[in-house]
Simulated assay, not measured.
Amino acid sequence: MTLPPPDLPRDALVCPQQISVEEAALVREAAGGSARAFEALVNQHSRRVFNFLNQMTRHRQDAEDLTQRTFIKAFHNLGRFDPQRPLINWLLTIARRTALNHFRDTKRWEEIPEASEAPGYSPAKQTEIQDRTENVWARAREVLSQREFDVLWLRFGEELSTEETAQAMGLTVPNVKVIVFRARQQLLKGDNAHE
C-alpha cells in the first residue's frame, strides 16, 4: 500500500474515472439480456471484486461466495445502473453491502495469506514486496477501525478516487478525506513508536 505524502494539495487525491466506450456498450448489452456481455463484465471485474471482498472477510471461500452473490445482484439490477459511471464503483458498493450483510450473520474474521504476482520481479523481490504490503495492511487492520480500514483499502488498495470511495462507502467526500487523514496519522504515529 502506498499512501500519498500528507502535504499533497487536496486536489491531488482526486482521480475521476470515466467508463470506457467498450464497457458502456457491454453494460447496455448485458442490461438488454446478453449473457455474453455480462460474462465479459464479470471476467473484467471479478478479480478486483474478489480482492476487495477477500480483504474484508480474510476468508477465501467467503470472498468467493460473496463475489458470486455480488455479480448475481448486479445482474438483477443492471437496468438501474448509470452507464456513464464506472461499473467497478457500483460493483464494489454492492460487494461491500453484501459483505456487511454476511458479517451480520456470521461474525467471522480470520486472516489467510494472499498470493500476488509482480511481473518483472525476481521471486525473491516479489516475496519482499508482498511481505511489505501484507505487513502494512495487517498493521492497518490492527490499528484502524473496520470503517477506516475499508476507506483506506478502497482509496489505495483499489485505487479509487476520493469521490468513488465516498460513493462506495456511503460517505461524503469530506468524510473520506478526514478518515484518510486520521487513519494515516494513526499509522504514522505507530511507525514512530516502533523506531
Results as ranks from 00 to 15, higher is better:
E159M: 12
N175W: 00
Q146F: 06
S145E: 13
E117Q: 12
V49T: 07
M169T: 04
S161V: 08
P119N: 14
R97A: 09
E134W: 01
N77D: 13
T172L: 02
E158D: 12
N89S: 11
R97P: 01
D82P: 01
F103H: 15
F103L: 08
G79P: 00
R141M: 04
P119Q: 15
G157R: 00
A115M: 07
A124Q: 06
A63T: 08
P86E: 02
L66N: 06
M56Q: 05
S145W: 08
L160E: 12
L154V: 11
H59Y: 15
E148G: 08
I72G: 15
N135R: 08
E128D: 02
V143P: 04
W109F: 09
L78P: 00
Q167W: 01
R139H: 07
E64C: 09
A74E: 10
R48P: 13
F103A: 05
R141N: 09
L154A: 13
P113S: 14
R80C: 14
R48T: 07
P86L: 00
E163N: 06
E110I: 09
E158I: 13
F103P: 07
E110L: 09
Q126C: 02
H102Y: 15
G120E: 10
R108A: 09
N51D: 13
A124P: 00
S122Q: 06
H102K: 02
A138Y: 07
P119V: 13
P86D: 00
E159K: 11
D150H: 07
V143S: 04
E163M: 02
V136C: 02
S161Q: 12
Q55D: 14
G120K: 09
T98F: 02
A118I: 03
V143T: 13
T106L: 04
W90K: 08
R96N: 03
N175L: 03
V143A: 03
K107Y: 11
A138S: 11
E64K: 10
T93I: 05
